[in-house]
Structures are given as C-alpha cells and as structure tokens.
Amino acid sequence: MQNNQQKNSQKEKLRPGQMSRPKNLNLFTIRLPINALVSILHRATGCVLFLILPVILLLLQLSLNSAEHYQTVIAILHSPFIKVMLLGLAWAFFHHFFAGIRHLAMDVHWMTTLMKARYTSKVVLVLGALATLVLAVKIWI
C-alpha cells in the first residue's frame, strides 16, 4: 500500500511527456465489446455514407434528367457488381439508422444499463442485417 503511494507520488513528479502510458497500437489485440463494435460501426458507416453523397446526387440528377439517362441509371443499378456495392451501402445506411436510433434512446436515458446496452447492441446488428437481407431478396428476385 505504502509502496503504491510512493510509486504514485513518483509518477506525479514526471512531466507529461515522460509519463509511461500504456501503448497498444495493434488494433487486432483489442477485443471490442459488442456495444463498442456497434458504436465504431456507426462512425465508420457515417463516413462511408458521407463519401457516397456526390454519387447519390449524380445518380438522382441523371435519373430525373431525361428518359435515356433514366435508362442508363437503371442499367447501372442492374449490373451484378453494382448490386453488391448497393447492398453494402444499404447495410451502412441501415446500421447507421438503427444505431442512431439507439443513441437517441440512450440520450433520453432509455436502455442505459450495461446489460440493456448489450442487448440493444445485438438488436441493432440483427435489424441491420435483416433489413439488408430483405433488400437483397427484393433486388434479386
């Protein structure tokens, strides 16, 4: 106990740059709890959705521009590779949507205990996957 206190007082004397902070730069050694996973995916999907904005605007403009351009957009959206990309983006949207609702719920102090937060994290992941699955069925059948 006394030894510990001595150590602590020694640490306080060190300047910030000299402090021995734990460094863990290998991201794969960090095991993310499920709520942290949902949270970081919320951020990552948000970035992806931001990056795709100009493409969405361009496609919308083309599709409304003329009948020919509309057909071009439809043809683009029907190619298998684009369909897979579209599903990925749709998942990003669904995850961001459901995880966002979860964050809003927590902001009004709903579902904030650890057990409930873990449970809603699972719900968010399942809902995102389910919505994507429904869309996949819809665009392939």
Binding site: R43, G46, C47, L49, F50, L53
Partner: peptide
Amino acid sequence: SLCIHAWLGIRDV
C-alpha cells in the same frame, strides 16, 4: 439536415 449532420459528424472524426 444531412449536410448539417455530416458536417458535425465528420468534424468530430
């Protein structure tokens, strides 16, 4: 809303 939301979000990133 999207532009405002993206501005605040990406700025935080």
